[in-house]
């Protein structure tokens, strides 16, 4: 036993949370240090470079709903590890770790509340949970959200963020593409709006299904949005990718988005859109038209 191993157990290592650097947020883009409270007050957008940091469901719901008031929608239980998948690690262990590190059950959460006074169901994907990947749980949650919206006769908003389908659920993850599309078809037949907000990053099978089927397509600035991964494309075409490739602004220029909306304007934009679609008549009766002149 060396002196170091003898000494180690006696040393008290402060836990990360106790360290003062938690007071500060370092911007992933420009590296500037921002007082965390200010950063959160600025909706997790860097005040120096306007970089939009990824945020999870709790923060998103708080930012979006009127006064932050909302209620979570209970999500259906699904088969866990349907393929008994194991690579270098067991899939069940990967899920367990994701749950421990995020405190969430799965890569998605659904809530309802009012946006601009109109009842709305909102689904948020959580990139922190196994890259937001779409498996049975995400697919079922999407269906549950759509049906909640139909039951409440209200619009559905989906904030997407995912690397794609969850490989560890094999073909069953792929089947979430048609399954979520059924949910969107049901919303359409109920004539209820389905609005997509693409956030960083949204790629693969998620983009190739519910993330691209909105009645209105919005995206946060600078979000990576695409079907194929950059590395795959580079290997295929063997040339450098254009500047800004697969970013929100690039998609906008190519006609794939209605608007790129900064986070500070997102709530107002969604409230306006929802109002236009759900309350098409004027709030106050207009003065009667003048009688036709003889």
């Amino acid at each position: 036993m060396s002196w170091l191993t003898r000494l180690r157990p006696k040393l008290k290592f402060p836990r990360r949370r106790d360290t003062p650097d938690n007071l500060w947020h370092k911007c992933r883009n420009c590296g500037q240090m921002i007082f965390r409270k200010d950063f959160l007050a600025n909706l997790s957008v860097c005040s120096h470079c306007d970089f939009h940091e990824r945020i999870g469901p709790a923060e998103r719901f708080a930012q979006l709903f009127d006064g932050g008031a909302h209620e979570r929608v209970a999500l259906p239980a699904v088969k866990e590890d349907p393929l008994h998948f194991k690579d270098q690690k067991k899939y069940v262990d990967r899920i367990r770790e994701a749950r421990a590190s995020t405190g969430a059950d799965e890569a998605v959460a659904v809530a309802h509340g009012r946006v601009g006074g109109v009842e709305t169901v909102v689904l948020v994907q959580d990139f922190a949970f196994m890259a937001g990947s779409m498996g049975l749980a995400v697919g079922e949650a999407f269906l549950a959200a759509a049906r909640e919206a139909i039951a409440r006769k209200c619009p559905m908003v989906a904030f997407t963020a995912a690397g794609g389908a969850r490989m560890q659920e094999g073909i069953l993850s792929l089947m979430q593409m048609p399954r979520t599309t059924v949910a969107i078809a049901e919303l359409r037949e109920a004539r209820l709006p389905y609005i997509v907000v693409l956030t960083d990053p949204t790629t693969g099978g998620v983009t190739a299904s519910y993330a691209m089927l909105g009645d209105v397509q919005l995206a946060e600035p600078g979000a990576l949005i695409g079907f194929a991964g950059r590395r795959v494309i580079e290997q295929t075409i063997r040339e450098k990718l254009p500047d800004g490739f697969q970013r929100s602004e690039y998609l906008y220029d190519h006609g794939m988005l209605d608007q790129v909306v900064p986070r500070r304007e997102l709530r107002a934009t969604l409230a306006r859109l929802i109002g236009l679609l759900m309350l098409p008549k004027p709030a106050l009766p207009r003065a009667p038209l003048p009688a036709p002149q003889a």
């Binding site: 593409m177 599309t181 691209m212 089927l213 079907f227 194929a228 795959v232 075409i237 190519h254």
Partner: peptide
């Protein structure tokens, strides 16, 4: 096909619409 032009023309959207 994973290519630049395919992405620009909306590969993901085209697939999603075809499934739909």
């Amino acid at each position: 096909f994973p290519g630049v032009q395919a992405e620009e023309r909306g590969q993901a959207e085209a697939i999603a619409r075809s499934t739909e």
